[in-house]
Every structure is written in C-alpha cells, then in structure tokens.
Amino acid sequence: MISLTINGQPHSIDVEPDTPLLWAIRENVGLTGTKYGCGVAQCGSCTVHIDGAAIRSCAMPVSAAAGKNITTIEGLAENGVLHRVQKAWLDHEVPQCGYCQSGMIMAVAALLKEKPKPTDADINDTITNICRCGTFHQVRAAIHAAATA
C-alpha cells in the first residue's frame, strides 16, 4: 500500500512501488485528465505538480511521490474557480484536440509560480511539451496573458 495525497485528498493504493506515478493516478485513483503520450519523459502530457513543481509523472515511480503533495489538472481550479492559466487558456481558445493540454497547463502554472513574468526565451526553454495539433502560438499568447492577469 502506498499513500498519496492528490489534490488534497489522501489515497491509499495497492500498486508495485516501481509503477510510474502516471498510471497510479490514471488507473488506481481514476483521475484521467493526466495523459499518457510517450512514457519516456518526452512529451509532457503527463505533467503534474509535486509540491508545486512540474514533473513528468510517467518518469517518476509512485513510491517517490509518497507523502508529497500531488496536484493534477483536476485539482488546479480552487473552490470551483479556474486557475488564471485555465482562464487564459479559455480566452485564447488554446486547445484543439486537447490531449496535450492538461500537461501544458500544469507545466505553465508551475512556470508562472517560479517566474511570474516569463520571457519568450523562458517559455521556449521550459515549455517543451509536445502538441501534435500545433497550438504553440495560442499557448504562448495565453502564457503572457496569464502572467499579466
């Protein structure tokens, strides 16, 4: 049994400790907003926050996340109020198919916490998530908008 705190809720789950956190979140806890895209830390679809920092959950064993505060896309809005990144995402109509967007939004939310006014270069360096639908312009515009919101 491994104890996880996800979006403020305690969960006790029965998985092998080497299971990637991604699969524990998706299948054992049942939060499917966090996506599988590559499994090898390439695409960022699986990005969640661990103690506020963005990590690619496909590359972290669930055992390493025990006892930490995990936030997924489902827990980003607080008391029903969308996070400012989500709001900017709505305003800029960022998603196309939407599959990469949970990971994008989580990566961006963590970036803004660290760098409240990121430059284009900061964005290029940090937001390396793959979007096969090519929403990069909207992503960039929405990041700048969220930074000034």
């Binding site: 996506k35 896309i73 969308l82 709505l90 109509e93 960022v94 939407g98 599959y99 967007q101 949970s102």
Partner: peptide
C-alpha cells in the same frame, strides 16, 4: 465562434478513448 468543448478541455474533463472506464 468559440469552441463548445474548450471549457471541459482546460479542466481535463473530456473522455478520450484511453480514459474509458
């Protein structure tokens, strides 16, 4: 015209095939 499915998509809500339970 704004997309009808965007709000769900920024909250991780839509069910893709891989999310079916």
């Amino acid at each position: 015209t704004r997309r009808l499915d965007v709000t769900d998509k920024v909250m991780g809500k839509p069910i893709y095939g891989i999310d079916v339970r």
